[in-house]
Design a protein around this nucleic acid. Structure first.
Lengths: 340, 340
DNA sequence: AAGAAAATCCGAAACGTTTAGGAATTTCTT
DNA sequence: AAGAAATTCCTAAACGTTTCGGATTTTCTT
C-alpha cells in the first residue's frame, strides 16, 4: 500500500510537498503537482483516512445510533427509511456513516459517549430512543454534536428533527369527526415515547375543538406492537361498544386493531373506522387500505443529516427542523353508520 | 479528552505501562494496574480507535456496500434485513459497520477499492450488486476480503452466501404442478442478476421433471419492478390466455402480476395462481396473501458477517454458505380450474 | 549473601498524515 | 545589478496508540 512517503521518494520531493500538492494548495508549482499526481496514480495511492483524521481531529464520519435495528424492528421500514435519508445526504457531502449497535454495546456496558469518542465520529444522529433511556441524558450532557429524531430537545450541540405530531393527530380525529363519528377511541404507544405524548395531546385537542368530551378510558396503550394493540382494541370495543372509530399512534398498531375488529365481527370501515400513523409501506397494500397520517421518514433522515452537518461545520445556528405530514385517506375510514 | 499520556503522567508511569495495563498484559503488577484503571476511569478515558488502528493496521470495522439504499429500494426491506443480520453479528464480535454509498461515490469516480482502502475497513460485505457492475471485477481482483450476497463467486479473499435459488424455483413450480397447473408462466427479474439466472434454471428443471415442455415465450422479464411486472403479466396473459399460473422471481413483481390479473378480470387464485420469491413483509398482509419462497435475509446477513469475520481472523477456510429456503403456501395459489 | 531467575517497568520507534514556520529560489522593481 | 517581493519547497513536530528490546527492581536459590 503506497503512502505519501513513497510518492515523495519517487518524485524527489518532501512529504510536505506531496501532501500540499495532492490537497490543492497553491504553494506548489503546476509542474511538480502534475508529476506528483501522476506518480500517485501510478502507485494507485489512496490516502489513509485514519492518519489524516488523527492529525486533523475530524473523521468526516457520523454515527447512526438506532435502537430499532433488530429482527423484530424490521417490520415497519421506518428505521430503514431514515437511514436511507441520512445516507443520501451524507453521500452528497462525502461523509461516511458508522452504525452503532446499541444493543450489544449496552451489554458490554459501553456508554453512548464512549462509543462516539472511541470511534471518533464527528457527530451522531439518534433515532428510536426512549424517554427513559439512559443514553438520552448522556446525549444532552455530552458535548458531542447530535441530532435527535422525534425528540424535541435542543441545546448547544443538540438539535432535532420531527414532525408536528399534535397537528397530525388533530387532523386524524378531525377527519373522523368530519365523517360523523362521535365516540372515537385511541390506541396509543407507550408513555416513554415523546410522539405518544404529543399524539394523545393532539387527539384531545382534536376532540375538544369539536366539542366532544375527552374520555380517558377510551384510550389504551398498545406499546407500538401489533399484537398488543389487537388485545387493547378488543378490550376497548368490548367495554365501549358504541365506539365507531379508533385513532392509532402507529400503522402497525392499526393493523392489530383491524384484526381485533375482525375477531369481534366488526367490519372496517362499516362498523369501525380506523386511522393510523406513519404511512408505512404495508398500509397501502393491506385490505382495506389504511387511512393514516403520512410522515416522510426519508425526508426526516435527510434533514437530520443535513442539520447535523451544519452543526458540525458551523453554519447557521438552526437547531431544529419540522418536516411536514399529511393525512392520506384510504379505505379504512368511512361515514359513521347511524344506528337507527 | 484524556489520552494515555495524561494517565501516564497522573500515575507516574510510562505510556507503555499504561497501554499494557489497560490491555491486560501480564507484565504489569496488579497494584499498578488497579491504579491505572482507576485513573483512567476518573479521567473518563476512552482509547482513540484511530490511533490504535493506525498502528495495528486493523480497524475492527467492516464496510457494507449496497446499491439498494435508495428511496425506491425501501419498499422491500430485503436490504434492511440483511443489514440487520450483519449488524447483529458484528455487535457480538464488536466490529463496527460503515455504510458505503455507492451511488455518490460512483459519480465522484471513486472506485470500490479506493473506498475501502481510504476508510481502512478490514473487509466488506457486498449486496445488491449486478452482474455487469464494474465493482464486481474490482472486488475479485482486489485483495480486500469480502463476502458477496447472492453472487456465487469465491476466491482467496472472497466468499459468498446465498440460497439455493434453483432448488427454490423448482419447489415453486412443483407446488404449482401439484395443484394441477399445466401451463405455467414466469416473470423473471433481469439478466444481470445471478438470482434470475438461477431461478429460471430452476423453473425449467421444475417443468422438465414433470414432463412439461418449457416454452420460452412464457417467460418475461419484469426487472424486479412492480410496474414492469404488471405490464409483463398483462402481455403474457393476453398472448397466452391458457396460462393458469405464474411464478415470479420476486414478491414485489408478484404484486404487479396480481394487479395485472385484476386488470384483466382474472381472479386470484381461482383463475390464476401466483407464487413469488423472497417472502417480504408485505406478502402476508396483502389480499390474497402470497404464496412464496421464503428466504431468511436476516440469516443471510448474519452469515455473511460471520463468514467475513472468519475470513479476517483466519479461522477455517470456508468460503461460502448456503442458507435454507422454504416454500410458504398462502392464498395466492389454488387448484387449477378445469375448463369444462 | 551473592548470583540467577522472575517480575515489572521504560525509552524510543513506528503507523501515515497535516501544518507552522522558515529556507531557498525565482521574479520583479527601480 | 541589488534589494524586495513572490514563489516554491522543506524540516520537524504533532496526533494517540502499540510494541520491541532492553533496563531495572524484586524474589528465589543455594
Amino acid at each position: 500500500m503506497a503512502t505519501i512517503k513513497d510518492i515523495a521518494k519517487a518524485a524527489g520531493v518532501s512529504v510536505t510537498t506531496v501532501s500540499r500538492a495532492l490537497n490543492g494548495y497553491s504553494d506548489v508549482s503546476e509542474r511538480t503537482r502534475k508529476k506528483i499526481k501522476q506518480i500517485a496514480d501510478d502507485l494507485s495511492y489512496s490516502p489513509n483516512a485514519l492518519a489524516r483524521s488523527l492529525v486533523m481531529n475530524k473523521t468526516k464520519t457520523i454515527g447512526l445510533l438506532v435502537s430499532g435495528i433488530s429482527r423484530e424492528g424490521a417490520k415497519d421500514n421506518i428505521v430503514f427509511e431514515v437511514l436511507t435519508g441520512v445516507n443520501e445526504y451524507c453521500g452528497q457531502v462525502e461523509y461516511d456513516i458508522v452504525l452503532f449497535n446499541t444493543s450489544s454495546s449496552q451489554q458490554k456496558k459501553k456508554t453512548y459517549t464512549q462509543l462516539c469518542r472511541e470511534r471518533r465520529v464527528d457527530g451522531v444522529v439518534i433515532q428510536g430512543i426512549k424517554n427513559d433511556d439512559p443514553y438520552l441524558i448522556e446525549v444532552i450532557e455530552s458535548d458531542i454534536p447530535c441530532v435527535l429524531v422525534d425528540i424535541p430537545i435542543q441545546g448547544d450541540t443538540v438539535g432535532y428533527v420531527a414532525t408536528d405530531n399534535v397537528a397530525g393527530a388533530k387532523e386524524a380525529v378531525q377527519h373522523l369527526v368530519d365523517l360523523g363519528h362521535k365516540q372515537i377511541g385511541m390506541i396509543n404507544g407507550h408513555d416513554r415515547a415523546f410522539v405518544s405524548q404529543e399524539r394523545i395531546q393532539g387527539y384531545i385537542e382534536g376532540l375538544e375543538r369539536n366539542h366532544l368530551i375527552y374520555n380517558k378510558s377510551l384510550v389504551y396503550n398498545g406499546g407500538f406492537s401489533e399484537k398488543q394493540a389487537e388485545a387493547a382494541a378488543v378490550s376497548l370495543l368490548e367495554n365501549y361498544p358504541d365506539t365507531t372509530a379508533i385513532f392509532c399512534a402507529s400503522d402497525l398498531m392499526a393493523f392489530g386493531v383491524m384484526r381485533g375488529a375482525k375477531r369481534l365481527g366488526k367490519e372496517v370501515p362499516k362498523d369501525l373506522s380506523i386511522v393510523g400513523y406513519d404511512n408505512i409501506n404495508l398500509s397501502s397494500y393491506v385490505t382495506p387500505s389504511l387511512t393514516t397520517i403520512s410522515q416522510d421518514m426519508y425526508q426526516i433522515g435527510y434533514s437530520a443529516a443535513s442539520l447535523l452537518i451544519e452543526l458540525l461545520e458551523g453554519g447557521d445556528p438552526k437547531r431544529s427542523k419540522i418536516v411536514s405530514h399529511e393525512l392520506v385517506i384510504r379505505e379504512s375510514t368511512g361515514e359513521r353508520n347511524q344506528p337507527f
